[in-house]
C-alpha cells in the first residue's frame, strides 16, 4: 500500500493534459457563464480590457458577479473586498482539504497548483485522491481548462454578449450545481457521511438565513467537519 500512496501526489505533463481533457466538458459550460459575466460587466460600464483583466486575475465567477453589484463611478472598496473574501473563503477549505497530499509537493509547486483551484477541479481532484488515484493533474490541468475557458467566455460576452439571450431557460445556471451534486452523490456513502451531510446542510441553511451574507459555506463545512471529529471512522491504517 505504501508504494501506491507515494504515487498519489505525482504531477507530470501527461496527468495535467489528462486532467485538462477531463474538465473540458464542464469548462465548455463555463464559457456560457463567462459570456454572461462579460455581458453583465459591460452593462455595469466596465471597459472591455478591464473586464478581461478581472476574469484573468481573479478567476472566481461568483465573487466577480457580486463585484458588479457594487460597481459604479465610485466603488466602496472595503465592502467589496469583504464580499469577495466571504464568497471565496471556501477556497481556504479546499486548500486545507488538499493539504494531506499537497504537503508532499515542494512549496513552489504546492502554491502554483493552488493558483487555479476552483470548485469543479477541486471536487474532481479530491474525489480522485479518496479513490486512491493521483489528483493533482485534475487540479492543475482541469484548473487551466476552466481558467482559459472562463477568460475566453468573458471575452466573447463583451463582444458578442447578445448571443445567449436567456441562459436560465436553457438550464445553464444549473450546470455547476448539478456537477457539484454529482460529486457528492458519487463520493462515499454510509450512515456517517449521511449524518455529516445532513448537519452540513442544516447549518448552511441556518447560516444562510440568520448569519451575515455568504457565511453559509464556511459554517456548513465546518459543522460537517466537527461531526466527522465526533464520529470517527474505524481506523483502517492501524
Amino acid at each position: 500500500m505504501s508504494g501506491v500512496k507515494t504515487e498519489l501526489h505525482q504531477l507530470n505533463t501527461r496527468l495535467v493534459w489528462q486532467g485538462f481533457k477531463q474538465l473540458v466538458p464542464i469548462a465548455v459550460f463555463v464559457i456560457a457563464f463567462g459570456i454572461a459575466f462579460g455581458l453583465a460587466a459591460t452593462q455595469a460600464e466596465l471597459s472591455g480590457s478591464m473586464i478581461v483583466v478581472m476574469s484573468t486575475l481573479v478567476f472566481a465567477g461568483a465573487s466577480q458577479f457580486a463585484a458588479l453589484e457594487l460597481w459604479g463611478p465610485q466603488v466602496p472598496l472595503f465592502t467589496l473586498l469583504i464580499t469577495v473574501f466571504a464568497i471565496n473563503a471556501r477556497h481556504l477549505l479546499m486548500g486545507a482539504t488538499l493539504y494531506p497530499w499537497l504537503h508532499h509537493l515542494s512549496p513552489a509547486k504546492r502554491y502554483s497548483v493552488m493558483l487555479v483551484a476552483s470548485d469543479a477541479n477541486w471536487a474532481m481532484s479530491i474525489q480522485a485522491f479518496s479513490r486512491g488515484q493521483p489528483g493533482f493533474g485534475l487540479l492543475l490541468g482541469g484548473g487551466l481548462a476552466l481558467w482559459s475557458f472562463w477568460v475566453f467566455g468573458t471575452w466573447l460576452g463583451i463582444y458578442f454578449g447578445g448571443a445567449i439571450q436567456d441562459p436560465m431557460s436553457l438550464g445553464l445556471d444549473m450546470v455547476m450545481g448539478c456537477f457539484l451534486l454529482a460529486m457528492v452523490v458519487g463520493g462515499e456513502k454510509n450512515l456517517r457521511m449521511l449524518l455529516i451531510w445532513t448537519i452540513a446542510a442544516a447549518s448552511s441553511l441556518m447560516a444562510y438565513r440568520y448569519l451575515p451574507d455568504n457565511s453559509h459555506v464556511l459554517v456548513g463545512a465546518l459543522a460537517g467537519g466537527v461531526v466527522g471529529l465526533f464520529w470517527m471512522e474505524q481506523s483502517h491504517e492501524h
Binding site: R90, L93, M94, A96, T97, Y99, P100, H103, D119, A123, I126, S130, G177, L180, L181, M183, V184, G187, M193, I196, W197, I199, A200, A201, A202, S203, S204, L205, Y208, H216, V217, L218, V219, G220, A221, L222, A223, G224, G225, V226, V227, G228, L229, M232, E233, S235, E237
Partner: peptide, 25 residues
C-alpha cells in the same frame, strides 16, 4: 498543523460538507 488521524477525519468530513453547504441554499 500536524496531519494526525483526527485532522484527517475532520478534513475528510469537511470536504463533502463544503459541497453540501454550497448546494443546500
Amino acid at each position: 498543523v500536524p496531519i494526525s488521524y483526527r485532522v484527517k477525519q475532520f478534513i475528510n468530513a469537511m470536504s463533502g460538507s463544503v459541497l453540501v453547504a454550497i448546494l443546500a441554499p
